[in-house]
């Protein structure tokens, strides 16, 4: 829509130039990058007098960047695997929660509630120390390295949350859908797979992506249990540089930035999907 031109000789205050229609002021990617740049530059400046080290903070950071990025890649791998595992088991658990068999229903409910109301870090420790480091199947020994345990540990809360998302989505459909299907002689299984779940996918997508975002940010918890992801590597890089305090801000700012760059678009896209799905239905 073209903005009409206002021209007047009267002493009135004209409206300020408008932003694009329907687009409120929002944080863009470059805001994050600018923030990061500001952090780096200001920290370099503040500590410039203190340090005798010849290399500037920025150049040290650049040197370590490939390693840190490879660590971040590992975070993404962990997040993908945990999400996949958690989604598969969580969907089954969610369907268990709407089962008509009382035992299945109540046990699914209990497992969901138990893992949903537990701190993620505790669940991670729980997986780390209770799972064996290898599985001996008699004919083959499957090793169970720490990062695999971390994936399992993080998939537990994901599982419980996905279970609730599935249950909530099914419950959110009007009961008329079930009744219409019943009156057309669909079995319960058919109703679920042909009519209810296809409609739920749309409803589940935004909360599911939101959960993924949260999970990605939580993958740094794996550093506590010694997995070489980005936080662990950052710590090691800083130690290798002799614990220079002027490096702390740029390094951790960099870690913040890469998480922001990765997670923010997901958050935006989630909002977009929520809006899109809210209109129709």
């Amino acid at each position: 829509m073209a903005r009409p031109e206002f021209k007047t000789d009267l002493p009135v205050m004209l409206a300020p130039p408008e932003r694009r229609q329907g687009e409120p002021l929002r944080i863009k990617l470059w805001h994050g990058i600018a923030l990061f740049g500001f952090c780096v530059l200001s920290s370099t400046y503040v500590f410039a007098d203190d340090t005798q080290a010849p290399a500037s903070a920025l150049s040290v950071l650049v040197k370590w960047m490939p390693l840190l990025l490879s660590g971040f890649l590992f975070n993404i791998v962990i997040s993908f695997c945990s999400m996949a595992l958690g989604t598969i088991v969580g969907t089954a658990l969610g369907l268990g929660q709407i089962s008509l068999i009382p035992v299945v229903k109540s046990s699914s409910w209990f497992v969901t509630q138990f893992f949903r109301n537990a701190p993620w870090l505790v669940l991670l420790f729980f997986a780390m120390f209770l799972l064996p480091f290898e599985f001996d199947l008699g004919f083959v020994v499957i090793p169970f390295p720490d990062w695999v345990k971390a994936i399992i540990g993080l998939s537990l809360p994901v599982m419980a949350n996905v279970s609730e998302v599935v249950r909530g989505a099914v419950r959110s459909l009007p009961s008329g859908q079930w009744e219409a299907a019943e009156s057309l002689a669909y079995t319960r299984q058919q109703t679920l797979w042909l009519i209810i779940l296809p409609q739920c996918v749309k409803r589940m997508l935004p909360p599911w992506m939101n959960l993924y975002s949260i999970l990605t940010m939580a993958t740094v918890l794996a550093s506590v249990v010694g997995v070489s992801e980005v936080m662990t590597l950052t710590g090691e890089a800083l130690a290798a540089e002799g614990g220079r305090t002027d490096l702390l801000a740029p390094f951790y700012s960099f870690v913040l930035l890469i998480f922001f760059v990765y997670c923010y678009p997901i958050a935006r896209y989630t909002v977009y999907l929520e809006k899109k799905f809210a209109v129709k239905d």
Partner: peptide, 16 residues
């Protein structure tokens, strides 16, 4: 239910 058809107040068509 194969013998008895039913139509509802709220139509209840499958929106997808």
């Amino acid at each position: 239910r194969k013998k008895v058809g039913m139509v509802f107040q709220q139509y209840n068509l499958f929106p997808h």
